[in-house]
Design a protein around this nucleic acid. Structure first.
Lengths: 207, 207
DNA sequence: GAAGTTTGTAGCTGTTTGTTGCAAATTACG
DNA sequence: CGTAATTTGCAACAAACAGCTACAAACTTC
């Protein structure tokens, strides 16, 4: 599309900065130094400045970076400004937790629909969003322009949902289940794995 | 052996392999090739073999790696074999979802205690575990040998819980809230950020 | 005006990764 | 049994990357 793709490393670090910046904004902070970002991300301050200065002069010497505008700039660099529609599958505990939190909304994701198969849940509301029956997936997907499917369903049915999402043309799947999903190569699956992240942290603590 | 720390990259990749291997085991697979691991992780197959062969000859030529034994080997390399006790804070939707899933148990983490402050929840059971009042934290932490605190609480109280965990000597905190936590430098905070991970995936899809 | 911060930038260096190539071990199959 | 197809283990090289040091310029604070 536009110029060069960012390398994996740069894109990963920019995302990481975005996370800390969004949190800092929520805490009411207005500006932040590369040193402070470094403490929260573990990335070297020089590296942070180099990453950012490659795209423009966003900081103020002697002051730091304005959080609000840096968030905007990074989202522009990542070409993910604006709002993206996502669909949530499963209105159980996890689905309800996701739908009623602002984690996705804070980063420009709008939960356009929640699907479940349980008749007791279909028709109820979670947050502001009505739970719809899973059978409506195909029509909703095309009508709403769903870009991402979030799977908060039992592992046993995750592959089926993934297949249906692929059929609906969705290219990005966020998998909270523990199933290993098979999808075509043009579809990206990201599996949440908090326990593995913990093991990683534990390794560095134990050594 | 014990002296050399793995580099960040190696430890991160080994953890990633562990995730896929655990999923694959759950799906009933017995062995897996470096090529297959590569498809699920995005890591180059040669790199995978190099990572693994540095610690021993775990694979069988012409066959691949035995999943069960590779999991065990990687956990040995990461020195995170055995069971580790964790404490969960917050018995709301998210806390219940975590407690009733096996994501942590599958990787050797045992939820030793669940804490909440809501009298309506204290005393109830989530899965097999009784919800205890938050005031009991200090005594439970020393009695059970808690290594990790998992925060499924509202952002507004996360810092307070983090402070109490630090006071109890816990060195690793897994933060599901959106608060930016301040802790001493010897304490590791890992913040869950699914939306940022999605943005990262979205960037590569959009470019 | 002086002192202290903090960014932007450059250059150097060691490390890490991707790539290619190939022998050895194993399986599958005629 | 013999041959082809897989797949690991390993080596060597080139390219990319990250960490480090250093410093001028811009800004804040006192």
């Amino acid at each position: 599309m536009a110029s060069d793709r960012l390398t994996l490393g740069v894109a990963a670090r920019l995302s990481r900065y975005l996370q800390v910046l969004t949190q800092a904004r929520k805490m009411g902070k207005r500006s932040i130094s590369s040193q402070a970002i470094s403490e929260y991300t573990g990335v070297n301050p020089t590296q942070i400045r180099r990453d950012l200065s490659g795209f423009g002069k966003f900081g103020k010497r002697g002051v730091g970076y304005d959080i609000e505008s840096l968030i905007e700039q990074i989202r522009k660099i990542l070409r993910t400004s604006g709002t993206h529609n996502i669909a949530l599958f499963g209105a159980g505990n996890l689905g309800q937790a996701i739908a009623s939190s602002s984690v996705f909304a804070d980063h420009g994701f709008r939960i356009s629909a929640i699907f479940d198969v349980d008749p007791a849940r279909v028709g109820t509301k979670v947050g502001d969003i009505a739970v719809r029956h899973y059978d409506e997936l195909q029509e909703v997907a095309s009508a709403e322009g769903i870009m991402v499917g979030v799977l908060a369903v039992p592992g046993g049915v995750a592959q089926q949902v993934a297949d249906d999402l692929v059929a609906a043309g969705v290219k990005i799947i966020f998998n909270y289940s523990d199933a290993l999903l098979s999808v075509p190569s043009d579809v990206t699956v990201h599996t949440s794995s908090p326990a593995v992240e913990l093991l990683y942290a534990l390794y560095f603590y134990l050594s």
